[in-house]
């Protein structure tokens, strides 16, 4: 079994390249890998294609920091604040530079990643018929359904990201891991991406993971690096471990309203912070107050062989 442990900084340096298409979290408002987002900004990656159904403020930060050339997504905003200011500035004024937007709905993006994960060239759907999303995303093609003559379908091409960065509650050193809660597109993203980086809130022994194989969403042979990163998802939540830091999102929203304010936020929370450990130190007591202290384990199930 391989040892894939790496720091967030080393994993980003080795596995995220300029021009990559990148899934930055696949779990809507939860489990967004902010620690890796900050590192990508520090290391100055450029020309990224940011893929996510919804990645809350993470996509907005990458856009504002100039890392993004294309957004492939269903929703880009700040769930606790409203519209995403950097996204708006890029789309409306070309600041800090123009971006291409590949509009999707949740279902079309889900189908694209599912196709990418399973070697399907495309998936025909009926959702998006009648939507102007077909006018702005020319890769979604209207065709006749060969099995129901006269009925149209939309062909959604497969999405095969270069990299998926995914927070998980626990992993062993090889990338055998557990993720639970709402699963959104975590499984599809991990199975579709060329390289997978895990931000593991806790490193555990392999025996913990294989004791519950149904909670494994993808096999370790899909994983390139395992980064021990307690609260690597802050300020987003992680089921059973961290609550959402809503005031943090609100503060980001307020300060990013103008470009100057965003850049000062970026200095304070990204550039003037050496790495993830220093970020956690800066959060101080605030982080502990977000820890889930309740305990609601499921009833055990039996996997005995005989």
């Amino acid at each position: 079994m391989a040892d894939k442990l790496a720091s967030v900084a080393d994993a980003v340096a080795a596995l995220v390249r300029d021009g990559d298409s990148l899934v930055i979290g696949a779990c809507l408002e939860a489990a967004i890998p902010f620690a890796a987002v900050h590192e990508i900004i520090r290391q100055g990656r450029r020309g990224l294609n940011a893929i996510a159904p919804i990645s809350d403020a993470a996509t907005d930060m990458l856009i504002g920091a100039g890392c993004v050339e294309r957004v492939t997504g269903a929703w880009v905003g700040n769930v606790s604040g409203g519209l995403a200011h950097n996204y708006r500035r890029a789309a409306e004024q070309g600041l800090p530079h123009p971006i291409a937007i590949e509009d999707h709905s949740n279902f079309s993006l889900a189908m694209a990643l599912m196709a990418g994960a399973n070697g399907l060239p495309y998936v025909p759907v009926r959702s998006l018929l009648g939507s102007d999303i077909l006018k702005t995303n020319r890769r979604l093609i209207r065709a006749d359904d060969p099995f129901s003559p006269g009925k149209p379908v939309i062909l959604v091409p497969a999405c095969k990201p270069d990299v998926a960065i995914l927070p998980v509650q626990r992993s062993d050193r090889d990338g055998n891991c557990h993720f639970w809660g709402s699963l959104v597109l975590v499984q599809e993203a991990a199975l579709a991406a060329e390289r997978v980086i895990l931000l593991a809130d806790e490193i555990v022994d392999t025996s913990v993971i294989v004791s519950d194989p149904n909670r494994i969403l993808f096999p370790s042979f899909r994983v390139s690096a395992v980064c021990p990163a307690r609260a690597g998802c802050h300020p987003s939540s992680l089921t059973g471990v961290w609550r959402r830091d809503t005031p943090f999102f609100v503060e980001y929203h307020t300060r990013s309203r103008d470009r100057e304010g965003f850049l000062s936020w970026l200095r304070e929370w990204v550039f003037d912070v050496e790495g993830h450990e220093a970020y956690l130190d800066k959060l101080g007591d605030r982080l502990e107050r977000l820890r889930i202290t309740g305990w609601a384990p499921p009833e055990p199930v039996n996997f005995a062989a005989v």
Binding site: P53, I54, G73, A74, W75, V76, G77, L83, A84, Y87, R88, A91, E92, I101, D103, H104, S105, N106, F107, S108, R126, S127, L128, L129, G130, S131, D132, I133, K135, T136
Partner: peptide, 21 residues
Amino acid sequence: DPARPRVKLPGSGGAADIAAT
């Protein structure tokens, strides 16, 4: 105009799918 919008709103999320189906 989507090519140069006055306001870029967040997008569909799941709404386009809900409305269609």
